[in-house]
Lab assay of single mutants.
Amino acid sequence: MEVRTIKVFTTVDNINLHTQVVDMSMTYGQQFGPTYLDGADVTKIKPHNSHEGKTFYVLPNDDTLRVEAFEYYHTTDPSFLGRYMSALNHTKKWKYPQVNGLTSIKWADNNCYLATALLTLQQIELKFNPPALQDAYYRARAGEAANFCALILAYCNKTVGELGDVRETMSYLFQHANLDSCKRVLNVVCKTCGQQQTTLKGVEAVMYMGTLSYEQFKKGVQIPCTCGKQATKYLVQQESPFVMMSAPPAQYELKHGTFTCASEYTGNYQCGHYKHITSKETLYCIDGALLTKSSEYKGPITDVFYKENSYTTTIK
């Protein structure tokens, strides 16, 4: 009895394709271990004539594949690729409408935090270190965002349907971005203890939790000093293409032309909904596939993004 075979390709990165001759009487799992086709788990399936010449994702289970996976995804987590594939199996079914010149995501599976993050990423200057993220990001900007969303979920250790947080998501993504040249110098002034300067680099240099107003941050924000008295913390120097200011959701007025974009969060910790506000020729609110415009805006804002380049204080 002759062994019926077909020729397929296996890959971990969709760049390096490895030619395989597979036995049609055995499952993919018996031949390769966990195997995925377009995100779908085909591990328990036997090869079919229609699979001839198709590319299958496999887990990096030998040295060659491990090197290829690390170079593309910059992670050695053995569960990463499987999590990416199972997320992709959902995100490829989502709709990605162009809204006001940006790629958004039609609401499904509690994905409003991903839509808000995706919209924000198209408006701030950011370059990702893992080629996987950078490639998928370019495709997302062009309207094909399924891979990018699935990668975000995998890097953030999230599953489809789980509630997510924009600030946490951005923080994970910033860790995989090139923020080497970003720098922030802060000064804390206390009447009792004097003053202390701190220099922050990388992710810490672009994120701040405690106030939404970048102007206020430049002037000074009140913080408790270690001595128990009130101290003032203010920005001395900022070198970065953008800054992200966050605070627990509270009524906040966004003035046209003073910011790049913002995240609105309605609801409580267990259950809520994100919308995205962007400042173009007027203010726009993007909620999944829905767009509304207004000249002014007041609502429960939790993150505001500002364009920056270089700032030095005039406070002496």
Rank of each mutant, 00 (worst) to 15 (best):
K218V: 06
I301T: 01
Y252A: 09
K158A: 06
L163V: 07
D23A: 11
T169E: 00
S263K: 03
R4N: 11
L179N: 02
M24K: 08
L119V: 12
N157C: 04
D13K: 09
N268V: 08
I315C: 15
R167M: 02
V185C: 02
V160F: 06
M24G: 13
M207W: 09
F174T: 06
D180Y: 10
A142V: 11
H176M: 08
Y138C: 14
V12S: 06
A150V: 03
P97D: 00
K275R: 15
I124S: 03
Y208G: 09
C261K: 02
G202E: 08
S279V: 02
T292K: 15
L81W: 11
E239M: 06
P224S: 12
R66A: 12
E215W: 03
S295A: 15
D41R: 06
I152H: 00
G164M: 02
F70G: 13
K229P: 02
L118D: 04
K201N: 11
Q98D: 06
G299D: 03
P60W: 10
F148K: 00
G33A: 02
K229L: 11
H256R: 12
G202V: 05
Q251W: 12
I45A: 12
G272I: 00
M26P: 04
T159Q: 12
Y96S: 02
D63L: 07
K298T: 12
C112Y: 01
K219H: 04
V188A: 05
E253A: 11
R139A: 13
L173I: 12
T10K: 10
A250E: 13
Y311Q: 11
M26S: 14
K316V: 15
E253M: 09
D41L: 11
N14C: 14
K307S: 14
G29L: 07
P78W: 14
N309Y: 12
E204G: 11
N89E: 15
S181K: 12
A117H: 01
Y36V: 02
Q134W: 02
S171N: 14
L179Y: 00
L173V: 07
S171I: 11
K44V: 14
T169S: 05
L102N: 00
T292W: 05
E168I: 15
S79N: 15
L126H: 03
T91V: 08
E296L: 09
C190K: 01
C156W: 00
S246N: 01
K280S: 12
E2M: 09
V203M: 12
F174K: 06
F148A: 01
T292R: 11
G29V: 07
E215L: 03
H51C: 03
A40L: 14
T192V: 11
Y269K: 15
D109V: 01
G220V: 04
T159V: 14
W94G: 05
A262H: 00
T282E: 14
Q134L: 06
V189S: 11
A289T: 11
E281T: 07
D38T: 09
I315A: 15
I286Q: 00
L37M: 11
L235K: 04
T302N: 04
K106H: 13
P78A: 12
C190T: 00
N157L: 03
V22K: 10
K219Y: 03
L179A: 01
A87P: 07
L59C: 13
A40P: 09
S240C: 03
N268K: 04
R83F: 03
D62H: 10
C182M: 03
C227M: 00
A146N: 03
K7L: 13
E281Y: 04
R139T: 09
T199M: 06
A146H: 08
E239Q: 11
T312H: 10
D23M: 11
Q30W: 14
W107P: 05
D180E: 13
P60K: 13
Q270T: 15
L17S: 12
G29A: 06
L200T: 10
E264L: 09
C285P: 06
A146M: 03
D77T: 07
Q238D: 02
H273I: 07
L126W: 11
E162S: 06
A115L: 08
G267V: 15
Y252Q: 09
P224N: 14
V206N: 02
A108V: 09
A250S: 13
Y137Q: 04
V12I: 10
N61G: 09
D109P: 09
V243D: 01
T27E: 11
Y138K: 14
H256A: 09
A146Q: 07
K229G: 15
L59G: 08
K293P: 11
D41A: 13
C193W: 07
A262L: 06
Y57F: 12
C149V: 13
I315E: 15
F174Q: 00
T226C: 09
T35F: 04
C156L: 06
A250H: 15
Y172V: 05
Q270C: 15
H51D: 12
T120S: 10
N157F: 06
T226L: 11
I286H: 07
Q30D: 12
V206D: 03
H51P: 05
E144H: 07
Y113I: 00
T43N: 07
Q195C: 07
V166G: 02
V22E: 04
L102E: 00
T312Q: 14
S213L: 05
I6M: 12
N178E: 10
K280R: 14
S246Q: 05
D23K: 13
S86Q: 14
T232A: 06
V3C: 14
M26V: 11
R141W: 08
K219Q: 11
S25C: 10
D77G: 06
V188W: 10
S240I: 01
N178K: 11
G210H: 06
N147P: 10
T258F: 08
S181R: 13
T11C: 09
E215G: 06
A132V: 03
S79P: 11
D287G: 01
Q134K: 10
A177C: 14
Q20M: 11
G272D: 04
P60D: 12
G228D: 03
G194Y: 01
E296Q: 12
L65G: 05
T103S: 02
